[in-house]
Simulated assay, not measured.
Amino acid sequence: MSEPVRVVAAGDHFVLPGLIAQAVGKELSDERPHETREVMLGWPLEPFGPVAEVAEASDAEDELIEALAGAQVLVTQMGPVTERVLDACPGLKLVVVCRGGPVNVNLDAAKRRDVRVCYAPGRNAAATAEFTLGLMLAVLRRIPQAHELLARRRGWEGAAYYTYEHSGVELEDLPVGLVGHGAVGSRVARVLCAFGAQVMVYDPYVRGEVHGLRLGSLDELLRRSRVVTLHARLTAQTRGLIGARELALLPQGAVLVNAARGALVDEAALCAALGSGHLAGAALDTYAHEPPPPDSPLFAHADRLVLTPHLGGASRAVAEKAARIAAEEVGRWVRGEPLAHCLT
């Protein structure tokens, strides 16, 4: 009998180690014998951040090195796969990251050691799209503010939102601009069309007609849209994509929604646009620095904002999908099949 495949399921309080182990067990049930060791990392109850030379990881190099002794496979979401970890674990052959990109892995170091690195694209597309629509409805109809007045302060002052001056905006016939038309943006577009919104898309990687939606330049989209929602990846080119100039192009009283990456937006410029009244509001799930510092200027505009702590991808289905996608890659590797989502 061949030696068992030794897998470390370094999960966390979202993608639970048990979910990973269960998915791997199901995938490998008819394959080689396997042993799975479960390790619980602290995220999201403990913050993530840069660890050594990698970004967005749990500070758990020592814990990971200990767990990986004798292992060939690591499945994780936040485990820091640094040069130090790779040096200490020469038997490691496959790393599968349960997220949309392996930002917690030193890809160059892994490639030098012939360690394959996979990830789980699309795991949270549906959840983030749904959450984006929730943010949009919340800010347009002032749902959190009304809840605060009635449930927290136990007053009926929120009825003022029924006056013409303070009432909200509906999506039907509303010009809405989407910056980005990938896995998330395309889902948001479909739902907005079902609401009857006038949807326009800016995406430099999309050519021709997109399911009947109008395409345009970023400037044209900003000038025409009462609501703009961001769905672009964060790159050197998109960092600060929406700054003072871009916000000034929006019509008076427009709304910005961002459940993508915080650094797409110049937060100082956003605060200035809110303070001047040029923007009626904004809904943010992501921030330039997470969490925002207590003295962030954003909090001074809380009456115009809907703020959530990076929850767009937080659904049980996302955790289950991530574990399943990762386990499928482990199964392909064990069977010697081509890996589906591999970067090294």
Rank of each mutant, 00 (worst) to 15 (best):
A194S: 11
G180Q: 09
S167P: 04
A248F: 13
W333E: 07
V330P: 01
L28M: 07
G91V: 00
S2Y: 12
D285S: 04
H231K: 03
G212F: 12
P294V: 09
E148P: 06
A323E: 04
M78V: 13
V184Y: 05
A248P: 03
H13Y: 12
G275T: 04
R187V: 03
C118V: 07
P293M: 13
L298Y: 05
L45E: 14
G70N: 01
R316W: 14
E165C: 08
A52R: 14
A326D: 08
A323V: 13
A248H: 09
G155L: 12
L249E: 12
N104S: 15
P80E: 10
Y287C: 02
E35V: 12
G240P: 08
L311F: 03
A127W: 08
A160R: 12
R152A: 13
A268Y: 02
D295A: 07
E31A: 13
R153F: 14
H310Y: 14
T286C: 01
G185E: 11
A125K: 10
T76C: 09
V188A: 08
L74K: 12
G70Q: 01
D12Q: 07
A323C: 05
R233G: 13
E38L: 11
D173Y: 15
R6F: 08
A326C: 01
L234R: 05
A146C: 10
V115I: 14
V139P: 04
G168K: 02
P17A: 04
V73W: 09
A236G: 14
V334C: 09
V97M: 04
T36G: 08
G177P: 08
Q145N: 06
R37K: 11
P297K: 10
L221Y: 06
G134N: 00
G100M: 01
V265H: 10
A194M: 15
V227M: 06
E246K: 08
P90C: 09
R233E: 15
G42M: 03
E61W: 06
A9T: 05
L45M: 10
V51D: 07
N106T: 04
A302M: 08
F131D: 02
V334L: 06
L19V: 05
I143Q: 09
D295P: 04
H278Y: 12
A327Y: 01
E38M: 12
G25L: 07
E130F: 09
A151R: 14
E3P: 13
P121D: 10
P309I: 02
A269F: 04
A120G: 02
G134P: 00
T229N: 02
V81S: 01
A55F: 13
N124D: 08
A67W: 10
V199W: 11
A319G: 14
L140A: 05
V330H: 02
A319F: 12
G101A: 14
R224K: 14
P4M: 04
A10L: 05
W156I: 11
L28D: 06
L86E: 15
L213R: 09
H34N: 05
K26N: 15
I20H: 11
G11L: 07
R245Q: 10
L178H: 08
R152H: 11
T132V: 03
R84E: 11
E53N: 01
A273Q: 01
L133N: 06
A323Q: 01
V306A: 02
P309H: 01
A52Y: 13
C89T: 12
R153M: 10
L74N: 05
L45F: 11
L68F: 05
G196F: 14
Q72S: 04
H310V: 01
I65T: 14
Y164I: 12
